[in-house]
Amino acid sequence: MTTPAPVPTRKEIQITGIRKHVAECVTEIDGTECGAHSNVWDTAMYLDVWIRAHADEYEHKKFVKRTEEPVNVYTKPAKRPQ
């Protein structure tokens, strides 16, 4: 009895959720970053509103915007050449 040849596979990435947007204040105060975080939103437009409000209130000037997108990786059979 012969062993069957392995089936070629490939990795697929599938988006599994809604993209999330968050901002963080990275302004240094006495050698330490502020670290304040905005709420998490599913659209980026609210980040600028939060950044402006935080900058007005605390006079901070440096921020980082981050986007997270949940994904899964799965294996599926590769298409065989015809």
Rank of each mutant, 00 (worst) to 15 (best):
Q14P: 00
T32I: 15
P6M: 02
V49T: 15
V40D: 08
P81Y: 13
V7F: 00
I18Y: 06
K61S: 03
M45D: 15
I51E: 13
E57M: 09
K76L: 02
K79H: 12
A55P: 08
T75A: 13
Y74N: 03
D30E: 15
N72W: 06
W50S: 06
K11D: 10
V40I: 15
I18W: 06
D56H: 06
K79P: 08
K62A: 06
V71E: 09
K11S: 12
P81H: 04
M1K: 06
Y74W: 10
H54A: 10
R66I: 01
G17K: 02
V7A: 03
V40M: 10
V7M: 08
I18N: 08
D56W: 09
H54Q: 07
Q82D: 12
L47A: 14
K79V: 12
L47M: 02
E12A: 04
C34E: 05
T75C: 05
I15D: 00
R80F: 13
G17H: 05
E24D: 08
R52Y: 12
D42V: 04
S38H: 03
F63K: 03
G35P: 14
H54L: 08
K79D: 15
N72Y: 01
V73L: 03
S38C: 01
R66M: 09
V7K: 03
A78F: 04
P77G: 05
P4M: 09
E59T: 12
V7W: 01
K11H: 08
N39L: 14
R66W: 04
V73R: 01
V40N: 02
V64G: 02
P77D: 14
A53M: 07
A78L: 14
R52F: 13
F63E: 05
H54N: 10
A5I: 04
R19M: 11
E12D: 06
H21R: 04
I13W: 04
I29S: 07
V71F: 05
P4G: 00
V49C: 14
V7G: 01
A23K: 03
V40P: 01
E12T: 01
T32C: 13
V22P: 00
Y74F: 14
P77W: 02
G35S: 04
P8G: 09
F63Y: 13
T27W: 12
Y58N: 05
F63P: 08
W41H: 14
T32Y: 15
R10L: 06
P8A: 12
G31A: 15
V73I: 14
P77I: 05
D30K: 15
W41L: 06
N72I: 08
H37T: 08
D48H: 04
D48Q: 10
V22A: 09
H60A: 11
L47N: 08
A5K: 04
